[in-house]
Design a protein around this nucleic acid. Structure first.
Length: 637
DNA sequence: ACAAAGTGTTTTTTT
DNA sequence: AACACTTTGT
């Protein structure tokens, strides 16, 4: 039943801050908020508000756009889990999935000039390929054009030139060298190619052309989605923004964008300088700023604020909602002579802190600016001496990065099944997770609670899986380690058993996980590789799921990969010129990256510097600001 | 054969 | 900025 808007209350959280209440009820608006403010949660609550009150009334839908797949999945899970009865009216997908789906569904409506004669292929062009194309083009061009074409950079041609160029509905004479280069690119990759090959920038332009040349299609889209959300708006590229503007600009659609100007870390990849101001201007949006911080203690918020002010002098000070529990000082800079001493000190300190606090290792994180693989060996061996594990989220498992593998829906399902099958019950979280993913095969299941078809078939399968485990003894300490052949046999059999249950050979089921069958193979290969390594090392089947996702390890990750995550204690490793070599050249972007790293910490933040790697002088401004913030510098060794 | 000059790499996502 | 690696010139 519909809730009266005045009576509506948020679910699963105590309350919203006053500014969030205002933004929740507002029309087209930009909502900016610092780290830990719960920006995605705000969008999830606004979705509940619009759907439960009937302000967004059937059959109208909300379209939520994110940049990354896991961000889109995360928002979808929150809303579907909270209001399953409205799940069919909340669409959460990535920018690229949305533009691609438009091209796939309506490609027949493309203008004659751009008609797609054959099925297209998605393919990415290397910098080398782009450079060769530009060189060839220059070689055969008029002398007047040659120097202009040669001056175009291969690395930014797609994002800076192909992206911003609107496709003309009919081809005519070109007026600038850039336009000539862009249309020649389209001619070669799309118009004249035996298999039209496009990347997501080009798909975006085709989708924009479709909407621009088919007013009835645009009207249908606007009628379906009167409410649009965009998350992480600070990282919007010019191409993405221009698409949003073409489709939803000047319409009745109510657009809500959310993000943080100070956390723009994709500038080097083409993100707009200030997407918010542009949006507020073009869409007449009302700005809102949220100021509560649900992540960090006030002391850490105050330190973060020093850097926030450097980036945005008008930044408002956040108010922490988290009580401090640590007695000692929550921040420090540790300066070492050698990398061995640095790694040993960190490892011993973490081990002692875990011993004393009982916190799991996953509440600590080692975060670096770049070149994480170079830092890994020393840190891993020092942690191993303390019986602690290091998880390098950047490591390649087959062709997949560990962090991406662990976020993959299929992998979560398979590991969840192993967890449920190998344990003696008491895994409600894993059960919910697995049923949630299974329910995607049978969407009508979302409307039912306990006793659904997904529950029944899962229970039946787990009986089978338990007997499989029971029949195969696994103890690498008592019995001699299994031979590689035996490990491979166990890995293959278990994988077959699991994928048979998931019915991965069924095309419809396959499509839930990926559009490209060859990617499924890459994911499954990576799954088997890791499963084999885990089985070879495990003492019992109930350890396998935990070892697979290494939930008891200290993660090591780059700032870019840490975005959106949080840890009790963060070690910001390598506060030196080696890791921060680009700081002088791109001070603003570099400081934003620093800000993102600093704001991952909930209660404690320790920086390290090591003479063997680099000195502090190239980032003296950061050291000065930390000193002004009262962060003590401790020399060790 | 060897030194000088040049190039690529570093932070990453999207079906 | 700094390093690894390749190409060019003598």
């Amino acid at each position: 039943m519909r809730t009266d808007p005045a009576e509506w209350r948020p679910r699963d959280i105590d309350d919203l801050e006053p500014a969030a209440w205002d933004a929740l009820r507002a029309n087209t608006s930009s909502v900016t908020a610092g780290p830990g403010a719960g920006k995605s949660e705000f969008l999830a609550q606004r979705a509940s508000y619009l759907l439960e009150t009937g302000i967004c009334r059937p059959p109208q839908q909300i379209l939520a756009i994110s940049f990354k797949r896991d961000a889109a999945a995360n928002l979808r899970r929150r809303v579907w889990g909270r209001i399953p009865e409205h799940a069919d009216r909340f669409t959460s997908m990535t920018f690229d999935a949305f533009t691609k789906s438009l091209v796939d569904r309506f490609k027949d409506l493309l203008p004659v000039t751009w008609a797609m004669k054959r099925p297209y292929r998605v393919g990415f062009s290397s910098v080398r390929e782009v450079r060769d194309f530009l060189d060839n083009l220059a070689a055969s061009a008029d002398p007047g054009l040659q120097s202009a074409l040669n001056a175009i950079k291969g690395g930014t041609f797609i994002s800076d030139m192909v992206g911003p160029t609107q496709l003309p509905s009919e081809l005519g004479a070109t007026t600038t060298p850039a336009e000539y280069a862009v249309l020649s690119w389209w001619a070669q990759k799309y118009l004249a190619h035996e298999v039209p090959t496009v990347d997501f920038v080009m798909l975006n332009r085709l989708a924009e052309l479709l909407i621009r040349t088919n007013p009835q299609l645009r009207r249908a889209l606007l009628a379906t989605y009167p409410y649009v959300f965009v998350d992480e708006f600070q990282d919007t590229t010019y191409t993405q923004y221009s698409f949003l503007h073409s489709v939803f600009g000047g319409s009745q659609t109510i657009v809500t964008v959310v993000g943080d100007r100070k956390q723009r870390i994709m500038g080097w990849a083409g993100a707009l300088d200030d997407a918010f101001s542009q949006f507020e201007h073009d869409f007449s949006a009302s700005p809102f700023e949220l100021n509560w911080n649900f992540r960090s203690t006030q002391q850490l918020v105050d330190l973060q604020h020093r850097f926030a002010e450097l980036l945005h002098p008008q930044a408002q000070r956040q108010i922490s909602q988290v009580p401090a529990t640590l007695g000692e000082s929550p921040t420090a800079i540790w300066s070492f002579s050698t990398t061995t001493l640095e790694a040993d000190t960190l490892a011993a300190w973490i081990a002692a802190d875990i011993e004393q606090s009982g916190r799991p290792a996953s509440k600590y994180a080692l975060i670096a600016r770049q070149k994480v693989a170079d830092l890994e060996p020393a840190l891993a061996s020092s942690l191993a001496k303390q019986q602690l594990k290091l998880r390098n989220d950047d490591a390649l498992i087959g062709k997949v990065r560990l962090q991406d593998l662990l976020k993959d829906e299929l992998i979560r399902l398979l590991v969840g099944l192993i967890r449920l099958g190998a344990s003696r019950g008491g895994q409600p979280g894993a059960w919910r997770d697995v049923v949630g993913i299974l329910a995607q095969f049978i969407p009508e299941e979302l409307n039912r609670e306990v006793g659904s078809r997904a529950d029944d078939s899962l229970a039946a399968f787990l009986v089978q899986l338990r007997s499989w485990f029971a029949a195969r003894f696994l103890d690498n300490h008592i019995v001699a380690s299994p031979t590689p052949e035996r490990v491979k046999e166990l890995t293959d059999d278990l994988t077959d058993l699991l994928t048979e249950f998931v019915q991965l050979d069924d095309l419809a089921h396959k499509r839930v996980f990926t559009d490209r069958p060859e990617d499924l193979d890459i994911t499954l290969d990576a799954f088997k590789l890791r499963l084999g390594a885990v089985i070879a090392d495990a003492d019992a089947w109930d350890q396998v799921a935990g070892a697979f996702i290494e939930e008891d390890a200290v993660p090591l990750l780059t700032i870019h990969r840490s975005k959106g995550l949080e840890y009790h204690t963060v070690f910001f490793v390598g506060l030196d010129g080696d890791q921060w070599w680009a700081h002088a050249r791109e001070t603003i972007d570099s400081t934003m990256a620093f800000f993102v790293g600093v704001s991952r910490a909930a209660e404690r933040l320790i920086f390290t510097q090591c003479d063997q790697r680099g000195s502090q002088s190239p980032i003296q401004d950061i050291y000065d600001e930390l000193a002004r913030g009262g962060v003590p510098l401790v020399r060790i060794g």
